[in-house]
């Protein structure tokens, strides 16, 4: 069963198309990561899922409900952490959390024990808290809930490494207990280690989607050592980096199927295949998106 289903979502603002036919499925109980460069559409996607914005077209179902129309019902089942955590400056963390807990029907005792565990000062006005501590206050609200779906936008932003690790453990535990976790992050190592599946978003659409191991394990680079000098013009469909006259690195899709036959005339002495790191995957997806946008053959 899918916890989140977005189909052909378009979000058009006056002059900007933030989402451009985005399709995404997140299964229940999954740890799902959204990655993409700045402005790719990650936060807009999360805003759509949360019902903060209404899609211009396309269909969205979250836990079987329409996130825009059924937002109040849905919000009882979702715990949310925004990307840029801002909290009411004048209130203390305890005042704010008490208010939030009363509306969200959270146990204040649980919030207090989490605060002790996370070392969050509850009695100080939030304007005096560091960025990391404010992030922790917002995380307390999220972690104290028994929500079916956890949505986090850049959750580790501002957290120290110990807190980051603690959060990762907490999210894994929640997923193990059956909750679905959807989060966006720029921290690719975090995404790589935590997520079951990821989607790479670029220019408002999903350009790659799958399990992390499948995506980054795909043969995407190939080092070639040849007897004869390689003619770059033969390999215009790939990115070619010449190390020496007879050693080059090719990058792109369908290397085995299409590039290797073209290499045969140059006398292949050795081939080494490599997967692509998440950084390269992201960079490649973004580059392909730009080229597509500029009308260049990809």
């Amino acid at each position: 069963m899918n916890a989140i289903e977005l189909r052909d979502i378009v979000k058009q603002y006056k002059t900007t198309r933030a989402l451009n036919g985005l399709t995404l499925e997140v299964q229940a109980g999954e740890l799902f990561g959204l990655v993409g460069v700045n402005g790719a559409g990650k936060t807009t996607t999360l805003s759509t899922v949360m019902g903060f914005i209404r899609a211009s077209s396309g269909t969205a179902r979250v836990l079987g409900l329409d996130p825009w129309r059924d937002a109040p019902t849905l919000h009882a089942k979702i715990a949310w952490l925004p990307g840029d955590v801002r909290l009411p400056d004048a209130q203390t963390a305890l005042e704010w959390l008490s208010y939030q807990a009363s509306v969200l029907k959270l146990e204040l005792g649980k919030v207090r024990s989490l605060a002790a565990e996370w070392d969050v000062p509850l009695d100080r006005p939030m304007r005096t808290l560091s960025k990391g501590n404010r992030q922790k206050v917002a995380l307390l609200r999220l972690l104290a809930s028994d929500a079916e779906l956890l949505i986090l936008d850049e959750p580790t932003s501002g957290l120290d490494p110990v807190a980051q690790e603690r959060l990762m453990i907490a999210l894994r535990e929640r997923a193990k207990a059956g909750a679905t976790v959807l989060f966006s992050s720029h921290n690719l190592i975090e995404v790589q280690t935590l997520c079951d599946r990821i989607a790479v978003i670029d220019a408002g659409r999903v350009v790659r989607e799958g399990s992390v191991s499948a995506l980054i394990g795909q043969v995407q680079t190939m080092s070639v050592w040849s007897r004869l000098e390689i003619d770059p013009s033969v390999f215009q469909d790939w990115k070619l980096e010449r190390v020496t006259a007879t050693h080059c690195i090719l990058e792109g899709a369908k290397l085995l199927e299409d590039a290797v036959p073209k290499l045969l005339p140059f006398g292949i002495e050795r081939l080494e295949f490599g997967g692509m790191g998440l950084e390269r995957l992201l960079e490649g997806a973004h580059r392909a998106g730009l080229e597509h946008k500029n009308g260049v053959k990809t």
Partner: peptide, 17 residues
């Protein structure tokens, strides 16, 4: 303006309420 609205919007109640 201060970016605190989304904590309010994510509460389980309609916006008009």
């Amino acid at each position: 303006e201060r970016g605190t609205i989304h904590f309010e919007l994510s509460l389980p109640m309609s916006r008009w309420r």
